[in-house]
Computed example of a mutant assay.
Amino acid sequence: MGAACCRPEAIDFEGDVNLFHFFLLRSVGKGAFGKVRVVQHKKTKTLYALKYINKAKCEKMKAVANIVQERRLLEES
């Protein structure tokens, strides 16, 4: 007579996601274009690393292609 399910429900990565879905926790690091923070999904309590960049700085330094390539690599992981 335990819990019906012990796993949190899956997150829909295809649906809309925005910053309001997460609690912003500690900062992990800072780079040339932005920062990385640990965030916690409000509903599932799952922890993630969130990287956010300054688009204007990225464009100014002509690094858009590098950022796009980094995103593609992370999506494949």
Rank of each mutant, 00 (worst) to 15 (best):
A10P: 04
D16W: 13
G34W: 05
V38F: 00
D12G: 02
K30A: 07
I11D: 01
V17F: 01
E9L: 03
C58M: 15
F13H: 09
P8W: 03
M61S: 07
A3T: 08
Y52N: 11
K45G: 00
A32L: 13
G31Q: 02
F13D: 04
T46W: 04
A49Y: 06
C5V: 10
K45R: 05
L74D: 07
K35V: 10
E59A: 05
K43D: 02
K57V: 13
K60H: 07
C58W: 15
L24Q: 10
K55V: 09
E59L: 10
A10V: 04
A32I: 12
A4Q: 09
F23Q: 11
H21W: 07
I53R: 08
K62H: 14
G15A: 15
G31F: 02
G29E: 06
R7W: 08
N54F: 05
V28I: 14
C5L: 09
L73R: 05
V68M: 13
V28H: 10
M1H: 13
M1C: 14
R37Q: 04
F22D: 00
K45I: 00
H41Q: 01
V36Q: 00
L74T: 03
L19S: 11
N54T: 02
I11K: 01
K30N: 08
L25M: 07
R72M: 10
K62G: 08
G29M: 06
G29R: 06
K55N: 06
I11H: 00
F33E: 02
R71E: 12
A56M: 09
E76C: 14
V36C: 01
D16L: 15
E9S: 03
Y48D: 01
F23H: 14
V28D: 05
R7Q: 12
C6D: 08
G15V: 11
K57M: 14
F23P: 04
F22I: 00
C58Y: 15
L50Q: 01
L47C: 05
V64W: 10
G2L: 03
K60A: 09
F20D: 14
K35L: 09
K55S: 06
A4T: 08
A3S: 13
S77H: 13
P8A: 01
K57C: 13
F33H: 03
A56Q: 12
T46Q: 04
T44I: 00
M1W: 13
E9R: 03
T46R: 02
I11E: 01
E76G: 12
C58V: 15
R26A: 05
L19F: 12
L74Q: 07
E76P: 06
S27I: 10
C5Q: 08
Q69Y: 09
F22E: 00
A56V: 10
F33W: 05
R72Y: 08
E75G: 07
R71Q: 11
A65G: 13
A65Q: 15
E14Q: 14
A56I: 13
I11S: 00
C5T: 08
A65M: 13
A65C: 12
F22K: 00
E70F: 05
